[in-house]
């Protein structure tokens, strides 16, 4: 076995032994988040931004708002897109280059959580129906990979969106001329979806897994809920399997922990 795999297997034994005693490697309870720190408006050039620390994990989300064409089948709706970059500065395991499957999965789960809850009121982002709408780019930049990038990214994305200011525009339907004004409106936000991720190790379900826990986990489950208790995304990731009871437990816990995290987001603004 390689050094890394020997380490992982020793680490797994250690973590499993602790879990049997009801303990996690960093002393947290099974349902505890690591400390969450949120700073907003950290990038002046972006229309919105948030820097989130979740334990050792750090992510920065920048929001750019542009104008563009709507999708042909959705003429009366603005557009949102989510992208994640796992830049090599954040981990020895990240490689430069186009987004790999981990970055793509991460981006798509964060995106679904926000999109499906209609967190952004995209219908209010139409400048001229069928012709011109706002395009909201959510760009997640992972800075330090300490585990649970998904929740950190989801939290940062919402904090950034909630502080995003959209410049007012004047659009001349006849000439097609577009003028940006020096006045700003807040981005219309309907809901605050929050992803809550569980790692399953043996039979234990752990909220907000650290990198050590992720290295040895059997499977991963993320459930995104908003303040109304609705589910807007779910994703089982990696290998492993979950029992129906475990999914039910995760669902209830995701609502409860989601409320806790949502309060922290709101306080940070």
């Amino acid at each position: 076995m390689s050094d890394q795999e020997v380490m992982a297997s020793i680490m797994r034994d250690h973590i499993m032994n602790l879990l049997r005693e009801g303990k996690r490697i960093d002393g947290r309870g099974f349902e505890d988040y690591r400390e969450i720190e949120i700073k907003t408006n950290v990038i002046e050039k972006a229309e919105g931004s948030a820097w989130v620390k979740l334990g050792d994990t750090q992510v920065l989300v920048g929001i750019k708002v542009d104008v563009g064409e709507p999708f042909p089948d959705l003429p009366e709706s603005g557009v949102m897109t989510t992208n994640v970059e796992l830049v090599p500065l954040a981990s020895p395991t990240f490689e430069p280059g186009p987004p790999d499957e981990n970055a793509i999965e991460l981006a798509r789960v964060v995106d679904r959580g926000i999109r499906e809850s209609h967190a952004i009121d995209l219908e209010k982002l139409v400048i001229s129906p069928g012709k011109l709408v706002r395009v909201v780019f959510i760009d997640v930049h992972v800075l330090d990979h300490g585990g649970n990038l998904l929740d950190a990214s989801g939290i940062a994305a919402m904090a950034a969106l909630m502080t995003t200011k959209v410049p007012r525009v004047e659009y001349n339907e006849e000439t097609g001329e577009l003028t940006k004004l020096d006045e700003y409106d807040p981005l219309p936000i309907n809901h605050i979806p929050v992803p809550v991720t569980f790692a399953k190790i043996g039979t234990a379900m752990l909220v907000d897994p650290s990198l050590d826990e992720e290295m040895v986990m059997d499977g991963r489950l993320t459930i995104t809920t908003d303040e109304t208790g609705h589910v807007s995304a779910a994703q089982k990731g990696e290998s492993g399997s979950f029992k129906l009871e475990e999914v039910m437990y995760a669902l209830d816990t995701a609502v409860e922990k989601g409320n806790y995290v949502r309060e922290i987001i709101k306080r940070s603004l």
Binding site: R112, E116, S117, H118, L221, T225, G229, H230, V231, S232, A233, A234, Q235, K236, G240, S241, F242, K243, L244, V247, M248, L251, D252, V255
Partner: peptide, 23 residues
């Protein structure tokens, strides 16, 4: 053994609806 190995959701559901869909 009823082990769930893939679970995704795209959409907007209440908790009860979500569990009903899973079942």
């Amino acid at each position: 053994k009823n082990d769930i190995t893939l679970l995704q959701m795209d959409g907007y559901l209440t908790r009860e609806e979500f569990m009903e869909a899973v079942r």
